[in-house]
Design a protein around this nucleic acid. Sequence first.
DNA 1: TCCAATAATTGACTGCGGTCATTTAATTGG
DNA 2: CCAATTAAATGACCGCAGTCAATTATTGGA
Lengths: 188, 188
Amino acid sequence: MQKRTLETRARLVAVATALVAENGYGALRTDEVVKRAGVAKGTFFSHFKDKDALMDLLIGAGIDAHLDQLAKAPPPETVEELVALQAPLLHFMTQERYVFDVILRLSGAAAVAEIGAIATTFGRYLDLTVPWFEKGTFRNDISAELQADGMQAFVTQAMALHFCALHEDQSMGARLAVYLRAWLCPGG
Amino acid sequence: MQKRTLETRARLVAVATALVAENGYGALRTDEVVKRAGVAKGTFFSHFKDKDALMDLLIGAGIDAHLDQLAKAPPPETVEELVALQAPLLHFMTQERYVFDVILRLSGAAAVAEIGAIATTFGRYLDLTVPWFEKGTFRNDISAELQADGMQAFVTQAMALHFCALHEDQSMGARLAVYLRAWLCPGG
DNA sequence: TCCAATAATTGACTGCGGTCATTTAATTGG
DNA sequence: CCAATTAAATGACCGCAGTCAATTATTGGA
């Protein structure tokens, strides 16, 4: 791989980042990226398989930054702390309908060979939250892995309902709290 | 509304249904629909807001047919029955990656005014499954609505992981069974 | 230093969803 | 039965992602 390659790629990413900062993710156009970066259309697609691959990189980086914060914090002891701790991450992932759609689309790796940034963050989310459940603060009848896995399902559900007009009465955090209480503190 | 309108619309839907039967949902092209239906491109879009609106109709009808089956069956008494009963529906929704993506995208109504067929089926799914939990066969510490809502979250999670290469070891049904046991039979 | 061989870049082109001013057909009232 | 009005249909056109044969730059060996 040539030095030139890295430079071009870095310029594309830098330009894309700037454009996203200006107009948001959904408004990004590959034409505008290549124009500002001073390269041809084809160059973009020799660096990224498709537009989704660039989005995967940008959004994945955003999620990762939020996971860094989660990693720093002490393990939450209550459902309320669990919800509060994850609020910034949920807000980031639902900032735009387009962003949430991309995340859903790319969160599962289609093939082992093509695990992207977002799919990686979903793995990291589990690695990071499993220890929260290993101390036995919540349930003891099921594994910490399953508790974390289920939390992920409810986080996704809460975010999905956030975009649903029929469920606008409740906030995302309040909805998640209800789910997690039922999931992590059954009978209590 | 004129009779002609209904005829044209019916022809578009019939052609689209036939094309889907031939090549699947993801391969459907609006150009081919209008060509076979013998109408102009613009006619398609005066009948459907966009391609998603047609897909909403076609896929929504498919889901509805499966819900009809669920409605006929007696309320399941065990997690195994719960999983077995829903297996055909899950299989339908995951028959193609494209179909699952469309369902996720359209399952939440963006506005109360634009509740489509798929969003309606998601409401119907809840209406239909809530009674399963009202007899107290499963949990009694949380409402039947919440039990049904949670089941929906886990069904979605199980389907999403179905497309994830990292989780191919387990079948969708097996995965769902694990989730539902933990969700509906805590401590048992 | 020069010459293949390889890697990177180019931009005209394609596919496909979606738009809109214009034309054509149906409907209604006199 | 014939305007006048409203509804439906038309197709050339646009935006934007993605392709690929041709071109240009880089590199490693003789």
